[in-house]
């Protein structure tokens, strides 16, 4: 049996003008970054449990900032913008300064992600490509341009422990990439096919062996990795893993699902939906790994007054959640079992 939990609103964070596209927690969970239509990045921090804007980063981009990502060390923020660039903000001097601008995409950059080591950065764009950048001594060098998708690429996310990258696209698929050790080029090793419309977002679980994806088709899908030589007889090629869709959660969401986050501490999955609702899913305790069952344990109607664009668990504080919406607000929540 699954018990229902409750999601408690802690604070509304207002400050952005217009739609807030994305939020990202500092890797230690001590502060939160947000970005949006107003071309700014805001850093929020709780002082005496009251959240305030501690910094506003401006003039890095000339158009909408679609997504931001903290580096694993917490010293850098990367920001992806519709202006076709990705900016790198450095705060080692105390204040955040934009010290690099990564150019190359032909049009809107939709997503950016740091690898767990912090040595690699991935970006993706409406130009259908995924770029992998190597970082060394504050220099950013393009290591690979991957043209595997046939449409607009919406999201890139690194594996939590390994240099394996996943990307989600308007072409309805998710692709997995790995560096080929022989010629050190990045190639697509597997394509996850099952969604029937745009895949907006994805998240790995803490082991990296499972992926959750969300789509315009209003479903959530769980994918299981099967490594080469797996004992249950799932065939693989070139010693590369394959990912199989082992669970589809349909009937819960009424509009496009824009974001998903799989909590690395609790294993809870949160979704951000165009029906203004935040939903939380939990795996059943007797769930079979090859055919898992998940239940919805929380659903907050009118979590925002417009589409919820982003939702993310605090990586350090159990139960703390942030969300962002077209309504211009960032919200801090607390999930109680």
């Amino acid at each position: 049996m699954i018990t229902m939990g409750s999601l408690e609103l802690k604070q509304n964070l207002s400050g952005h003008r217009g739609r807030v596209w994305s939020i990202c927690w500092h890797p230690k969970g001590i502060c939160l970054a947000s970005c949006g239509e107003d071309k700014t990045i805001r850093i929020w921090q709780a002082t005496n449990s009251n959240w305030i804007t501690t910094m506003i980063l401006t003039e890095g981009h000339t158009r909408t900032i679609r997504e931001i990502a903290w580096s694993p060390c917490g010293n850098y923020i990367a920001s992806a913008s519709f202006d076709a660039t990705t900016a790198i903000w450095d705060r080692r001097s105390g204040e955040f300064e934009c010290n690099a601008t990564l150019e190359g995409h032909e049009n809107e950059v939709k997503s950016v992600s740091w690898s767990s080591s912090g040595h690699l950065l991935a970006t993706c764009s409406r130009d259908k490509s995924v770029w992998i950048w190597e970082t060394k001594d504050d220099e950013y060098e393009c290591a690979s341009v991957i043209n595997a998708h046939t449409q607009d690429v919406k999201k890139v996310r690194w594996h939590p422990n390994e240099d394996i990258l996943a990307s989600a696209s308007y072409d309805n698929t998710v692709k997995i990439y790995k560096e080929d050790m022989i010629d050190s080029d990045w190639t697509c090793i597997h394509t996850l096919t099952s969604h029937t419309s745009t895949v907006w977002s994805l998240s790995f679980d803490k082991t990296g062996e499972r992926i959750v994806t969300v789509s315009d088709d209003k479903t959530v899908k769980i994918w299981q990795e099967y490594k080469s030589g797996n004992t249950i007889g799932i065939s693989t090629t070139n010693n590369d893993s394959v990912w199989k869709c082992v669970c589809t959660l349909s009937g819960y969401h009424t509009r496009t699902i824009y974001d998903v986050d799989w909590c690395k501490i609790t294993g809870l999955i949160v979704t951000a939906c165009g029906d203004d609702i935040i939903r939380i899913f939990k795996e059943e305790s007797d769930s079979d790994i090859h055919e898992p069952t998940f239940s919805m344990i929380c659903s907050i109607n009118n979590a925002h007054t417009q589409d919820v664009n982003s939702a993310q668990w605090n990586p350090a504080i159990v139960g703390q959640l942030a969300s962002a919406s077209d309504d211009g607000l960032v919200k801090i929540w607390f999930y109680n079992e």
């Binding site: 739609r19 239509e37 909408t64 679609r66 519709f82 049009n107 809107e108 939709k110 409406r126 607009d152 919406k154 308007y170 419309s197 745009t198 315009d216 496009t256 165009g274 589409d307």
Partner: peptide
Amino acid sequence: KQLADKERVAA
């Protein structure tokens, strides 16, 4: 699909 994609409409 294009008209329903608010990100592409916004861009």
